[in-house]
Each structure stands twice: as C-alpha cells, then as structure tokens.
Computed example of a mutant assay.
Amino acid sequence: MTGPVGRQKQRYRGSRLPVGTIVVDRSSRRGNPFRVEEILGNGEAADEPEARAIAVRRYADWLDGTGPQRLPVTKSRTVDRDWINAHMGELIGHDLACTCPVDGLPCHRDVLLARAALLALEQGQAPGVGAARHAWLRTAVEQ
C-alpha cells in the first residue's frame, strides 16, 4: 500500500489530475511564496536545484513561524500561514499537485505531504504504519 504522492500540475488545456488530488501551487491558498527565480536572481544559489532547496526550506521555516503571517504569492494573492496550518488535516490521504516537476528535487508539496502524513499518524489515521515509518516521517518534517 502506498500513501499520497506529489504530482505535477500540467499547464495545458484539457489536462486533468486524478480524482481527489489537491492543487497546492500558487493559484491555491497553499502556494509557496518563495520563488526560485528570485533566489537565483539575487545570487543566493548557484543553480536551480540549490534554489529549489532554499525555497522549500524557507517555506517550511515560514510554516513554523519565521517571518510575517501573510506573504504575497502573486501580485494579487497572499498566503496565510495560520490558515495553511489550521487546514493541514484536509490534505491527509490526498495526492498534492504543484507546477514543479516531480523529478526528485525538492518542492513545497513535499513539506505539505510530510506534515499531513505526520498529522495523520498523530491522529491515529494511518493504520498499519509502524514506529519506524513514524520516526522517518518525523525526521523528514524536521529537516
């Protein structure tokens, strides 16, 4: 049995995601306000993989309370840390889709998947998952 996975949301007309998949890209209330392009443009990273890792780490830190509660995600939208954390339970058991490719490099959807899985374990919603998996998930969330 496998758990929820990350998926890539395609940007072309007629593309469909599997039923039950939750979109977490910047068009949603769970988008990552930390942009790879800005990190590269500011010279904070040497390449895209490093910039993606920085953006994901900043997202995780922001969810943990670093920085302002609300951040702009597009010119007309903001994301709210308290709302995301309060609604984490809605992600339990669902695949998550972002426009980032599913290529082994970090994406903020990985942070959301890990936190939703940990929440499921804490709430007893993940039957059949042993202590070793629980420890792995806790480590993944804390990284």
Score class of each variant (00 low, 15 high):
residue 101 P to A: 14
residue 2 T to W: 04
residue 113 L to N: 11
residue 121 L to K: 10
residue 139 T to N: 14
residue 127 P to W: 12
residue 2 T to V: 04
residue 114 A to H: 12
residue 59 Y to G: 01
residue 105 L to Q: 14
residue 55 A to N: 04
residue 24 V to T: 06
residue 10 Q to W: 14
residue 114 A to T: 08
residue 128 G to K: 15
residue 31 G to E: 11
residue 140 A to P: 13
residue 96 L to Q: 10
residue 44 E to Y: 06
residue 34 F to Y: 08
residue 61 D to W: 05
residue 93 G to K: 05
residue 141 V to Y: 02
residue 68 P to V: 07
residue 129 V to W: 14
residue 116 A to L: 01
residue 72 P to T: 09
residue 132 A to I: 13
residue 98 C to I: 00
residue 36 V to D: 04
residue 31 G to S: 07
residue 69 Q to Y: 01
residue 42 N to F: 02
residue 41 G to N: 10
residue 3 G to S: 07
residue 105 L to C: 07
residue 59 Y to K: 08
residue 123 Q to A: 12
residue 135 A to D: 15
residue 99 T to H: 05
residue 93 G to C: 07
residue 33 P to G: 01
residue 21 T to F: 02
residue 30 R to N: 01
residue 67 G to H: 03
residue 102 V to C: 12
residue 40 L to Q: 07
residue 99 T to I: 09
residue 44 E to L: 13
residue 61 D to C: 02
residue 101 P to I: 06
residue 97 A to Q: 02
residue 95 D to S: 11
residue 140 A to E: 14
residue 65 G to I: 03
residue 48 E to P: 00
residue 95 D to M: 01
residue 116 A to R: 03
residue 19 V to K: 15
residue 1 M to R: 13
residue 84 I to E: 02
residue 11 R to I: 11
residue 88 M to S: 11
residue 89 G to E: 11
residue 132 A to Y: 07
residue 37 E to K: 14
residue 77 R to C: 06
residue 14 G to P: 05
residue 91 L to D: 03
residue 108 H to R: 06
residue 78 T to C: 02
residue 88 M to F: 05
residue 75 K to V: 03
residue 12 Y to T: 15
residue 89 G to Q: 07
residue 143 Q to C: 11
residue 8 Q to T: 14
residue 119 L to T: 06
residue 98 C to G: 08
residue 111 V to M: 04
residue 55 A to L: 03
residue 9 K to Y: 06
residue 3 G to I: 04
residue 103 D to H: 06
residue 137 L to R: 09
residue 108 H to D: 02
residue 57 R to I: 00
residue 32 N to Y: 03
residue 136 W to V: 13
residue 48 E to Q: 09
residue 116 A to P: 03
residue 77 R to Y: 00
residue 135 A to K: 15
residue 7 R to S: 02
residue 126 A to H: 02
residue 114 A to W: 09
residue 121 L to W: 07
residue 44 E to D: 13
residue 39 I to V: 09
residue 16 R to M: 13
residue 48 E to Y: 08
residue 24 V to D: 02
residue 97 A to M: 03
residue 139 T to A: 15
residue 93 G to Y: 04
residue 65 G to L: 04
residue 1 M to W: 11
residue 9 K to V: 06
residue 98 C to A: 14
residue 48 E to W: 08
residue 8 Q to G: 09
residue 41 G to E: 09
residue 86 A to Y: 03
residue 16 R to Y: 08
residue 92 I to E: 08
residue 10 Q to L: 15
residue 70 R to H: 07
residue 60 A to Y: 04
residue 9 K to W: 05
residue 126 A to D: 08
residue 55 A to D: 02
residue 138 R to F: 05
residue 70 R to I: 12
residue 30 R to V: 00
